Amino acid sequence: MDYVGFWPRVGATLIDTLLLLIFIIPMLIAIYGESYFLTDSFFRGPAHFMISCVMPPLIQLAFWIALSTTPGKMAIGAIIVDAKTGGKPSASQCVKRCLNAYLSALPFYLGFLWVARDPRKQGWHDKIAGTAVIRRKTTAVPAALQ
């Protein structure tokens, strides 16, 4: 398996974050108005919590379960696989991976930084869930089409 390293995964995360913001910011403005960005309050209401805290991981989880990837990972040609078989991860592995991403983030993002030093490029959330992020296999282009 061709494991995807730290920096490409950072790039994929940035792409995913920007795409989510394209949907989240207009929704928050529609509900709270432009004054939403002028307050220092951490919690601005139940809609803020649902849109900013609940919706993003659920969308990410839906992509992982349905496609084994996210738009950001698609852009870098990566997929999430079962670390043992290289096949599609189970829904339960995806849920474990999602929940344990918070564990990876807690101690100064050490669980994510672990990807940079791990031989199989797994973060703590990958190790706990039994998943890995690899390059998507490309099909060879016949010589006649090149």
Rank of each mutant, 00 (worst) to 15 (best):
A75P: 12
W124Q: 05
K73L: 10
G77H: 06
Q122F: 10
L103D: 02
V141M: 10
F108V: 14
L28M: 15
Y102C: 09
A62H: 03
R135Y: 10
I29N: 04
A66D: 03
L110F: 12
K121M: 11
Q93N: 07
P89K: 14
L113D: 00
A144D: 12
P89L: 15
L99V: 15
M74T: 07
D40C: 00
A129I: 08
R9A: 11
S90D: 05
T69L: 07
P89Y: 14
T17L: 08
P8K: 08
I24W: 00
Y109F: 14
A30Q: 05
W7I: 15
V95Y: 02
C53T: 09
I80S: 05
S41Y: 03
V81K: 04
W64L: 14
L38M: 12
F112K: 04
F108N: 08
L19Y: 02
A75I: 09
P142E: 02
G130P: 08
H48R: 00
R9G: 13
L21Q: 07
L28V: 13
L103I: 14
D40G: 15
L19P: 04
D16A: 08
I31F: 12
I15S: 00
W7V: 13
R97I: 13
A144P: 01
G123D: 01
A30W: 08
L20M: 15
M55I: 09
G33Y: 13
A83D: 13
L28Y: 04
R120Q: 14
K88C: 01
G72N: 00
K73H: 02
F43N: 15
F42W: 13
E34A: 15
P8V: 11
G111K: 07
I31A: 07
V133Q: 00
S90V: 12
G123P: 03
P107Q: 06
P57N: 07
